[in-house]
């Protein structure tokens, strides 16, 4: 099951993780981009937490609202990208009874929307390189998915992203010099997945 409360916890946990890694995200973005990712993401997720619909039992509604908050508050390219992810995923999830397999189908639509919006494919050193492999493992495991499987896949993906040459955004100006450096967007996506895993883990223990 993936409940509205779990969706809210996911976002609250993400906001905490992003805020506590604000400087790291800024440093990564300064090396390859314009250095505003830490600040933008912290502002965006803070707004998303403040605007979380606390009353609803529908996880889809929670995620859609999160998408709108991120879109309007992040400011950088991550705004429309993460905004698209959550809005599209949210609009796929209907009603109050949502399974993990439904969440993975929703996130699949979300990530496809991101790829279209950012005109990005895999191995271009972006958040897609983190999110898509994770969504694949979610699709593969369905309702049997565990927190550890999510984390393991996310860690593995994060290592791969580091080695790619940047093809998108301002990082692309660095060409082969971008190899060996981490992408700020992939790093923030990693925190989102780590947060989702911690919510699944808490649910498993309940």
């Amino acid at each position: 099951m993936f409940t509205a409360e779990m969706a809210r916890q996911w976002i609250k946990e993400s906001a905490k993780k992003i805020e506590s890694h604000k400087e790291q995200l800024t440093d990564l973005d300064q090396a390859l981009g314009d250095g505003d990712h830490g600040l933008n993401m912290t502002r965006g997720f803070k707004a998303a937490v403040e605007q979380l619909p606390e009353e609803t039992d529908e996880p889809g509604k929670v995620l859609k609202t999160v998408g709108t908050s991120l879109l309007s508050k992040i400011g950088g390219a991550s705004g429309p990208l993460y905004g698209t992810l959550f809005m599209k995923a949210g609009s796929q999830l209907e009603g109050t009874t949502v399974q993990l397999s439904d969440l993975s189908s929703g996130l699949r639509v979300g990530v496809e929307g991101m790829k279209k919006r950012g005109k990005a494919e895999r191995e271009e050193k972006t958040m897609i390189d983190l999110l898509e492999p994770v969504i694949e493992i979610m699709e593969e495991k369905g309702n049997e998915l565990t927190a550890d499987q999510l984390i393991d896949k996310a860690k593995e993906a994060l290592e791969h992203v580091k080695e790619y040459e940047a093809k998108k955004g301002r990082a692309a100006y660095y060409k082969e010099k971008s190899k060996g450096k981490q992408d700020a967007g992939a790093q923030s996506s990693y925190y989102l997945i780590e947060s989702l895993a911690s919510v699944l883990e808490m649910d498993g223990e309940a």
Binding site: D36, L71, S72, G75, G79
Partner: peptide, 12 residues
């Protein structure tokens, strides 16, 4: 710029 008038862009 953003809604707050900072560097960036805003769909809204």
């Amino acid at each position: 710029g953003t809604d707050e008038g900072e560097m960036g862009t805003s769909a809204m």
